[in-house]
Design a binder for these strands. Structure first.
Lengths: 229, 229
DNA sequence: TAGACGTTTCCATTATCATCGAAATGTGGA
DNA sequence: TCCACATTTCGATGATAATGGAAACGTCTA
């Protein structure tokens, strides 16, 4: 069994508190400059650079140079999802401060999970798609039905294009706050992108949290027949 | 966010190769003497004892004294399931030797996931229970329907008793070889126990693998309408 | 009662690795 | 051209923790 090797090497990436902090912060799917990540993890830029280099070497993160900044992000959606899964075992975070509980409430409500929407909103949307027969669950796969093809096209998604991407097309991703599944994969990403384009959601600064706009509430009621407050 | 702390401490449990080997071996749900675990991990008894003491302290494993042996096992089903989940990210194990691939094939077919059945057999059984309307999926929960109540009672399970247990009654557990869900929780455990009592399955020595008997094949065809070879 | 065996405790060794100061590199702006 | 700034590289340090030898403990067997 050389599963051992894989398992422990994956785990050791996250076992260091500084790296965990960095990865958790990168879980918002955005690009972050090295300095910010150092600040988040509470370490000096040198140390952060050391960790980032290490993670870049194993392919966990990728770099993009822009001027004198270097922006890092998580390389693969699957890695991000693994960390999300770990979170669901870290248990419901014991709330310490009011500020934390407030932040937590926002995260539960709607947040980014790397490149797609997560939290209550995402779970409700996924439920709706299944209920209306646009998606069909098959294990961890989510198949788009005939009615789904029409629905998504009508929604402004180019499904053939999304299918072409070199990644899973449509799959379940475990939501660690809701303990249910939400749509991930290229479809989840495309859907999320489209909803942002329609200004249904707006990202918060420096956080994975996502705010729902008035248009969003209205749109979700009309399109998905769900009501979020 | 003190999620960080939790996440990294969970990961550090498995990040050490020796501990990973021990935990992976304990994933069969059986009790194992300390010496065996040392051998499996390729370390001296002292070192294994050190790791086991550490894991016992954090509540990951529990000890049972029998004569001069001390038998260890994973304390909580949820921990075992977390490790199983990590395995699904470790990727399909690159097969090195023929012996390994053979062992792997057996594991895929049927194995123990701590205290319940996993692998193809478990996934097929779960599918059958859903298809026949005995179980109903609700997020990660599995509800027993009215017809399910009758079915399980007829199968020899004491559901009220199982519900009393201080653990999740019936839930989905991600199968890392099949990438689908199978029944876990008290129901998964009870079901597995009953099938072993009926001699449908037999455990292999020193492995998580499980062999299906002739009775098992016949019984599964009759009761679950599935055919496994 | 003695000895074998499984296991743990104690202890010293060793290696690994996160960390940071100092300095180098590269980029942008004045 | 010079300086400020983001980042990395280098090098040294210190802490942590895995490891195994020696010995003790408890249990089983003869």
């Amino acid at each position: 069994m050389n599963l051992k090797r894989n398992v422990s090497s994956i785990a050791s990436l996250i076992s260091d508190p500084s790296r965990a902090a960095i990865l958790l912060h990168l879980l918002d799917g955005r690009c972050h400059p090295a300095g910010d990540l150092a600040a988040v993890a509470g370490i000096t830029p040198q140390t952060a650079s050391f960790h980032l280099a290490k993670m870049a070497e194993t392919g966990t993160v990728t770099v993009e140079k822009h001027g004198r900044h270097r922006y890092y992000r998580i390389a693969q959606a699957s890695d991000a999802e693994m960390i999300e899964q770990l979170l669901s075992f870290a248990g419901p975070a014991p709330v310490v401060s009011l500020r934390q509980s407030d932040q937590m409430k926002k995260l539960r409500h709607a947040r980014m999970c790397y490149d797609h929407l997560a939290g209550e909103a995402a779970v409700r949307i996924t439920e709706s798609l299944l209920r209306e027969g646009h998606l069909q669950k098959d294990g961890l796969q989510l198949h788009v039905t005939a009615s789904g093809e029409r629905f998504f096209a009508d929604f402004g998604l180019d499904l053939p294009q999304l299918r072409k991407k070199r990644r899973a097309f449509s799959r379940c991703c475990l939501d660690w706050t809701e303990r249910e599944h939400h749509v991930a994969g290229a479809l989840g990403q495309g859907l999320t992108e489209r909803m942002f384009a329609m200004d249904w959601f707006r990202r918060e600064e420096q956080s994975r949290a996502v705010r729902i706009t008035q248009e969003g509430k209205q749109g979700m009621a009309e399109r998905f027949r769900i009501r979020l407050d």
